[in-house]
Design a protein around this nucleic acid. Structure first.
Length: 625
RNA sequence: GCGCCCGUAGCUCAGUCGGAUAGAGCGUUCGCCUCCGGAGCGAAAGGCCACAGGUUCGAAUCCUGUCGGGCGCACCA
């Protein structure tokens, strides 16, 4: 048995085929293209999986659905793992054979096979001018989780972090250093210290606007020529410390100044200028500018002309972005690369670099079949324009080669954050508080735990990440301490605890000589001794591959987070289950030989699936906590 | 004004390519350590799934409209 649900769908399709052959009712009805819904049955309904397929047929055949359900059931060749089928009104309900089902589920892999396609994910992309705040937190965590999920779904994944080193923000901060003649005193953390200067400069503009503006412009010109690269690098390194503390890592930093130097802007414009929709009006509103008409792809816009190059000759940001994306999908070449730093996992982080190598042995950057950008929902319009430009110029290998994972803002106790005004909450501050709270709980619950510091970090950071991931990206999050750092209920520690509990049981089992090797390969297990309680847990376990596929396909990490909660809940319910007389009836260690090995295998499956779900969310899974 | 997103329990949210009696967490109330980890489990209470029409055997889910709320609509980035 590979996977029960598809097998069941095939079996039903076959039964329908037989039914139609015997009693043709609708010649146009093709069983092969018949969509056979199969779902888990609601609680308190008989069976494990059910199908309302009879409804679909009833309409086409003009026959009674209950009657059809009976007819299908009669012809159904039960796939492996299915014990029997019962007809409940118009529904077809399937009872699995517990032993065969659990065993098959435990043998299934925890991720999908490679699909030979590559996705380039861009996330983080924090302006290199001050410390990252809680709004960026959502971006980093979403992007990092998505990268892990896409990888598990079989994609080759490359994570890029775009460094806007020629922008106004970086310019202002670096100018502030000169303006105040400041030298770094060693504390606070470098990016935080710069953030203070940046905010101070913003206030000083009220009195000294002209001089500051002139100074900032000079610095920006130097940035464009790459003269201040090492100053910016210093900021980037400080910001990366925060990302690493969250568990996020990258493959490549892409510097805007390198993108421009590589000619992607110019070459991208050349590609665009060949399009009939890209013109240079000689008169009217856009005289002298290079504009693109997107009305064919984006109907209904009030203003269908998008300015690519201003009449003063300066390129708009979207034009740079289009060039950058043409490179991402392999339509342009020419960046050079150098190693930037070794990350906590040991993996090398590369960077684009003016004096780097044209190629890196064993690696090919960019050339994505598709690209996903993790960017604020407020950027939806410009993102749509980049995607449209990509489509108009032939795009990447995938039909829909640019996705925008748009996430909503994070407000602070109901207030909008503002980096410029200094109304922010730094990620570093939040991590510190999260770990502090977690440590207090760890010391209370497990005073003897040797790895208390490590566990406190895993739990605190995990809780924070989970809070950012558990609901849909398009939902506004109001950051509140108690909620974001909760260690109970729908939280990372709930899942981590369930995992640690499974580990604990398996440790005890191993001491008692009960082994639970991978793949449910236990000769001592007697699978026939399993029942509905084990099936309930296995039914959750069986969903994991589907969950990964769905999360990857819809760029939705929250699907994995919700799954982790569901699995932990099912496992906790199993663990605590009692029989009619109130006695625990799911013990592994106290079960008779044969049953205990099979149960141990199930617990090992739960442990592995919980660990995998947490890995996909970028959350550590301690064995004790 | 036009466009996109949201509206589900007191609060925060799942469920939305149509399927059986709409589910969690927090909060409230009541139970559960002779038993592998109580950061847990069980139970109670709490819902015109914003509103009104429509499609359908069947709608929280699809369509239209209305009302609330958020965001976007620069020769800024």
């Amino acid at each position: 048995m590979k996977d029960l649900v598809p097998a069941l769908q095939d079996a039903i399709r076959n039964a329908v085929r037989g039914l139609l052959a015997d009693a043709p009712g609708d010649a146009a009805l093709d069983p092969d293209s018949l969509d056979v819904p199969v779902q888990r049955v609601p609680l308190d309904k008989p069976g494990d999986y059910g199908s309302p397929v009879a409804f679909v047929l009833a309409k086409r055949l003009r026959r009674n659905p209950a009657e059809l359900a009976r007819a299908i059931a009669e012809r159904l060749a039960l796939p492996e793992g299915v014990d029997r089928v019962e007809v409940v009104g118009p529904y077809l309900n399937v009872f699995v054979d517990p032993g065969a089902f659990v065993r098959a589920v435990l043998r299934a892999p925890l991720q999908l096979p490679p699909n030979g396609r590559k996705v380039v994910i861009e996330h983080t992309s924090v302006n290199p001018n001050k410390e990252a705040h809680v709004g960026h937190l959502r971006n980093i965590v979403l992007g990092d989780a998505l990268a892990r999920i896409e990888r598990a779904a079989g994609y080759e994944v490359e994570v890029q972090n775009y460094i806007d080193d020629t922008g106004r923000q970086a310019g202002e901060t670096l100018f502030a250093l000169d303006y105040y003649g400041a030298s770094y005193p060693g504390t606070p953390k470098y990016d935080h210290w710069l953030g203070e200067l940046y905010v101070r400069l913003g206030q000083a503009k009220e009195d000294d606007a002209e001089a500051i503006e002139a100074g900032v412009r000079t610095v920006m010109h130097r940035l464009e020529r790459g003269e201040l690269r090492s100053e910016v690098e210093r900021i980037v390194r400080a910001q990366l410390e925060t990302c690493f503390a969250l568990g996020a890592e990258y493959d490549l930093l892409v510097w805007e100044s390198d993108v421009v130097a590589a000619g992607f802007l110019q070459r991208g414009l050349e590609v665009l200028e060949r399009l009939p929709s890209v013109t240079r009006p000689e008169s009217g509103k856009y005289a002298g500018a290079l504009v693109m008409d997107v009305s064919e792809f984006l109907p209904g816009l009030e203003e269908s002309q998008v300015v690519l190059v201003r009449s003063d000759g300066n390129a708009m940001y979207v034009a740079k972005d289009i060039g950058y994306h043409l490179w991402k999908v392999g339509r342009l070449e020419g960046l050079r690369y150098a190693p930037f730093t070794q990350q906590p996992s040991g993996a090398m982080l590369w960077s684009s670099a003016p004096d780097g190598e044209a190629s890196v042995p064993g690696r090919t950057f960019a050339h994505g079949d598709q690209a996903v950008n993790v960017i604020d929902a407020r950027q939806s319009h410009p993102q749509t324009i980049v995607r449209t430009a990509l489509q108009m110029t032939g795009g990447g290998k995938d039909e829909d080669s640019l996705h925008h994972l748009a996430y909503e803002v994070v407000t602070l106790e109901g207030q909008a954050m503002s980096g410029r005004k200094g109304v922010t909450l730094a990620i570093d501050t939040v991590i510190e508080e999260a770990v502090r709270r977690a440590r207090a709980v760890v010391l209370e619950k497990q005073p003897d735990l040797e790895s208390a510091d490590e566990v406190a970090r895993a739990v605190g950071v995990g809780a924070l990440r989970f809070a950012m991931l558990k609901s849909e990206a398009k939902r506004v999050i109001d950051f509140r301490w108690e909620q974001a750092l909760s260690l109970a209920g729908d939280s990372a520690p709930y899942v981590q605890y369930a995992h640690a509990r499974a580990c604990s049981i398996l440790r005890a089992a191993a001491e008692a000589g009960i082994e639970a090797p991978a793949g449910a390969d236990t000769p001592d297990a007697d699978w026939r001794l399993l029942g509905p309680l084990e099936v309930a847990v296995a039914r959750e376990l069986a969903r994991l591959p589907t969950v990964i596929a769905q999360a990857a396909q819809t760029d939705s990490p929250h699907v994995v987070a919700q799954y982790a909660l569901d699995l932990a809940t099912a496992w906790n319910a199993y663990y605590n289950h009692r029989d009619a007389s109130g006695r625990p009836d799911t013990s592994v260690l106290r079960a008779e030989p044969g049953r205990r090995e099979a149960r141990a295998a199930l617990v090992a499956g739960v442990r592995d699936a919980l660990a995998q779900a947490l890995v996909l969310l970028g959350i550590e899974a301690p064995e004790r906590m």
